[in-house]
């Protein structure tokens, strides 16, 4: 007997997947599947939806019904699925470019409508599938193929955006924090209304390679050391102290009970 815990959720014939060596997306897939498993959801009642990009290849490896849609539009398709049949459990995989650039409008409106689904955004701070172009989440000063002199545009804070737009549950963790990420996704799945979980992931091929992370493990280490708990960030803000440079907040941003749409009948 082997203990491949969530093997039944993967399409065995499709693995190994196309993600590069050390890509964090596989880790986030594990966390999502573990969370779904903990919820005791049935494979046949669960739909994974995604757009285009590295992150969006994830549903193709999952043994449920899955919808791999057009770039940025995953949330619109998911809205259609959930509103037409609220008995299905809908989980959306998206990336930073997919959710915030081309799909920014759909993202804020899905949060506003608060449709009962869980959105997992794998934020690798870059467009990975097209070879490493700058995205709205590429930090200032970082190198990508379209920002060869360092990115100059301010970044989107996706979690804060989701809070402002009205999502019921918003959390951010990294692919290093697998336990916390799994728990955040699980809370999201259990929450009525839209849950947005931003998972910071390493992209060794397109991002790390150009930004002084020689190995995938280096970038994971960086995420571990540069993630500060949201509570600490708030405390620093209250005390009027600056947040250390390049650090980002992790934790549960909001958990509330705004009225939701498309809740199971």
């Amino acid at each position: 007997m082997t203990t491949r815990v969530f093997e039944k959720w993967y399409r065995e014939d499709r693995l190994p997947h196309i993600f590069c060596t050390g890509c964090g997306n596989g880790t986030v897939m594990n966390c999502a599947i573990k969370a779904v498993e903990e919820m005791h959801w049935e494979i046949d009642d669960t739909i994974f939806v995604s757009g285009i990009g590295c992150s969006s290849r994830a549903p193709g490896y999952m043994s449920t019904d899955s919808l791999h849609t057009t770039h940025g539009r995953a949330l619109t398709f998911a809205t259609g699925v959930k509103m037409a049949n609220p008995d299905l459990n809908v989980v959306v995989f998206t990336g930073d470019g997919d959710a915030s650039a081309i799909g920014g409008n759909h993202f804020i409106h899905a949060c506003r409508r608060n449709i009962d689904m869980t959105v997992i955004c794998m934020n690798n701070m870059i467009y990975g599938m097209t070879g490493g172009q700058g995205s709205p989440c590429t930090p200032v000063g970082k190198i990508s193929t379209t920002t060869p002199y360092g990115a100059t545009e301010p970044v989107f804070d996706l979690a804060e955006l989701a809070v402002a737009a009205g999502a019921n549950h918003v959390a951010r963790w990294t692919s290093y924090h697998t336990k916390e990420l799994t728990r955040a996704i699980e809370t999201g799945l259990a929450t009525e209304g839209l849950s947005f979980i931003e998972a910071m992931v390493q992209c060794p091929t397109a991002y790390g390679r150009r930004n002084k992370f020689r190995k995938a493990t280096d970038q994971v280490e960086w995420m571990r050391t540069h993630a500060i708990l949201l509570q600490k960030v708030r405390r620093l803000e209250e005390e009027g102290k600056p947040i250390p440079e390049e650090h980002f907040a992790v934790g549960e941003f909001v958990h509330r009970q705004r009225p939701a749409m498309g809740v199971r009948r």
């Binding site: 849609t69 539009r73 619109t76 398709f77 259609g80 699925v81 959930k82």
Partner: peptide, 9 residues
């Protein structure tokens, strides 16, 4: 997008 998603249900 929504009508395609709905159609699949």
């Amino acid at each position: 997008g929504a009508i395609i998603g709905a159609s699949w249900t």
